[in-house]
Simulated scan of single mutants.
Amino acid sequence: MNILQMKYIVEIVRHNNHLSAAATALNTSQPGVSKQIKLLEEELGFEIFERTRNRIIGLTSLGHEVVGIAERIISEMEGLQNLKEESRSRDRGQLVIATTHTQARYVLPDVIKQFVGQYPSVQLILKQGDPEQVCEMVENGDADLAFGPQTIRPFPRLLRLPCVELTRCIVGRADHPIFERSTMTLEDIARHPLIAYDPRYTGRWRVMAAFDAAGLKPSIVMTGIDADVCKTYASVGLGLTILPSVTYDPEHDKGLQARDASHLFPTSVSTIALRRTGYVRPFVLDFIALTAPHLTPSAVREALRNGANSVAGD
C-alpha cells in the first residue's frame, strides 16, 4: 500500500463515488485508479467499496475505517511537507482562507492588513462561499482555515473555535416609518416586509426563531446571500433587513438608516475551522490570534491536541 492509493480512496469519496471525476481531479486515468484500488483491496483482504455491476455505489463498513485512516495519513504527509517548507523559511509561504462574503468584506480587512504587515512574504488567498462550502474547502485540503458563521451541518473532522460575536441591527431606507418610533419591538418589525439571509446561513434561522418564539410570522419578500445584497434592495424600498451590526457604515450606506436590535435577536458567533489532524504553521496560528486575542497559538495547539471546540485562553 502507498500514499497514492490513499489519495485515490479519499478522492473517490469526495466525488460521490464517481471514478472518472476522481481520476480527473488527480490528473490520472480511470483505469489506473480502478487498478490501484483493486490492488489495495487484494492486499488488505477485504473490499473497501460496495459495487453493483463493477460500479462503486458506496463504502463497506470496513471501508469507512479505511477512509478515516487514509485522511489522517494524507493530512500527516501534508504536515511533513509544511514542516519541510518551514525549515527553509518560517515567514514565507501561502495562506489560503475560506470565508463568507460578509466576513471578508466587514470583519477581516483590519486583521488581514495587520497580518500582511507582519508577514509581507506570505501570499494570502481568500476563497469565498457559503458557510458549509468554506468548511468543505478546509475539510478537502483546499484551504488552511475557514472563517465564518456556524453551520447547520456538522463537520466532525474539523475543529471549530468561536472567535467573534456579532450583534444585529435593523437596516432600511432612512425614510422608513419604523425609524420614527422611539422604541422598536418584534411586533413593529413583523408588520413590514423583510429581506432575509439565505436559509443556508444560521443567522437566518436565529432571526426567524426569535419571531417564532414571539408567535410572529413576518413576510419575507426576498432572500440574499450577503449583507451588501440585502442592503441594496433595502435601499430601493423593498423592505427592512436584519444584519450583523458590523455591516452597516453610515458613511458608505447613504440613504440607509440602522437601529440596534441586539435586545431583540441573539448574537451570531463567527468561528475558525481547522482540520483536526496535521501540522499548523506558525503564521497560520498568528493569523488566528489576530482575529481573537484569546485564540493564542498555545491555546489553539492545546485545542487541537484535546479535540476541544472551545478555548479558554491563556
Rank of each mutant, 00 (worst) to 15 (best):
G141L: 07
D144V: 07
F147H: 08
D130V: 11
Q128A: 10
I125T: 14
D142M: 11
N140V: 09
C135T: 00
A143H: 06
Q128F: 11
F147V: 12
G141T: 02
I125V: 15
I125P: 02
Q128T: 14
F147D: 00
P149Q: 12
L145K: 01
Q118G: 08
Q128Y: 14
D142S: 14
Q118P: 04
L145G: 03
F147A: 11
Q118R: 15
A143K: 01
M137I: 02
F115A: 04
Q123E: 14
Q118T: 07
Q123W: 04
Q128C: 12
Q128H: 14
I125A: 08
P120L: 06
Q118N: 15
G141H: 07
P120Y: 11
V138W: 00
L126M: 14
E139T: 08
V122G: 05
D144C: 03
P149F: 14
V134Q: 05
P131F: 04
L124W: 08
G141I: 11
F115W: 09
E136D: 10
C135R: 05
L126Q: 04
E132Y: 03
G148S: 10
N140C: 12
L124A: 06
Q128L: 15
G117E: 13
C135W: 00
D142W: 12
E132G: 09
K127P: 03
V116D: 06
M137S: 05
G148Q: 00
P149Y: 09
V122F: 09
Y119Q: 05
Q133P: 04
P149L: 12
P149I: 07
P149E: 08
S121L: 13
F147E: 01
L124T: 11
D144G: 02
V134K: 07
Q114A: 12
A143N: 08
E136F: 05
V138E: 01
G117R: 09
E136M: 10
G117S: 14
N140T: 13
C135H: 05
L124Y: 03
Q133I: 12
Y119G: 00
K127Y: 01
A143P: 10
E136L: 13
M137Y: 08
Q128K: 14
L124K: 03
E139S: 14
C135S: 05
N140H: 15
G148D: 01
P120E: 01
F147K: 00
